[in-house]
Design a protein around this nucleic acid. Structure first.
Lengths: 168, 168
DNA sequence: TTTTATTTTCAGTAAGTTTTGAAAATTCAA
DNA sequence: TTGAATTTTCAAAACTTACTGAAAATAAAA
């Protein structure tokens, strides 16, 4: 397969992958493009490579910046802004985990704390069923939270090299 | 907080949570409703509780069945079909991981295998950058695949009780 | 059978999300 | 300053996905 085709396939499937995970397609595609690009790119480069409008590039690149997945690069003597992506995939994963944990898992756990204290007789079966479900989700969620904290602090080698041996 | 209100909040935030993860809101809401319900429910019950149409309930309940997250329950002497959800949250997580791994991670890894073999001189910097990125994603992906396999086979206690002590 | 209850399907519509493109704002150089 | 290059914004349009509701199919009862 030729590089041009391979790039296109990578970008398009990274985009499709993203949509399954609640990430908008263009954001994922821009990210993919920056990941495989040896040098930083301008917004015009991205418009051209991905055939999308200026506004679209601009909005999505700024989302990538807030996630920490891309950064602005100023090239001396150049007027335009350039952008590049974090290339260390383990760092990328950690950034995403950190952000989603903060945005989704933590608020969910807070809510579950409140819901667990629903008023009423715990022997009533609808109350019992509700509280049991909420508690068990909370328990697992809290554990997931801790595990992800550890992961976010860890080196890639922890994951790739060390972890699995112990659990075979 | 009253049970009725607590239920509504749970259902609505479970639905919102789902949409962030590529799961349609109604499917997540039906799932939430079944999770907290002490007894199996009919499609009419769900229509009423969630204020949605018959067709919508029917399509989404059937998706839940194919994911293994809900099951049909036949009550003797009753004409209507009833549905209930798997209440063991650890099992729920494992079912979801299993399905998404199959649908998303595995095809992605297959694609990366192909893309890694792009033709051309590996010293060319655009080729090198592409291959390096693809390889490092593949490496991490393969490891994630194995880790998830182990997780899918594991008991909840492995996760909640045993795992973390070792990595503190 | 025929009738009645229940479930399933799916075309059309509605709702939600993403994208465009042109205008406004900003930045830099002359 | 002024003007050109560049970035940002956002209302409207395009696209995508989800939902409705009525009709068709199926299953159970009479």
């Amino acid at each position: 397969m030729k590089l041009t085709e391979a790039k296109q396939q990578f970008i398009s499937s990274w985009g499709a992958f993203g949509t399954n995970w609640g990430i908008n397609r263009t954001m994922a595609q821009i990210h993919a493009l920056l990941l495989i690009s040896p040098d930083p790119l301008t917004q015009d480069d991205m418009m051209e490579e991905l055939n999308i409008s200026r506004g679209n590039v601009n909005m999505n690149i700024r989302d990538l910046l807030t996630w920490g997945l891309a950064e602005r690069v100023i090239l001396p003597g150049e007027r335009k802004e350039y952008f590049s992506a974090e290339k260390d995939i383990w760092k990328v994963v950690k950034l995403i985990v950190k952000e989603r944990k903060k945005r989704e898992l933590e608020p969910m756990l807070q809510l579950l704390d409140k819901l667990e204290e629903v008023e009423g007789d715990k022997r009533d079966k609808s109350i019992k069923s509700f509280v049991d479900t909420v508690s068990s989700i909370k328990k697992l969620g809290k554990q997931a939270d801790k595990t992800l904290d550890t992961m976010v602090k860890a080196e890639e080698s922890w994951f790739v090299g060390g972890l699995m041996k112990l659990f075979k």
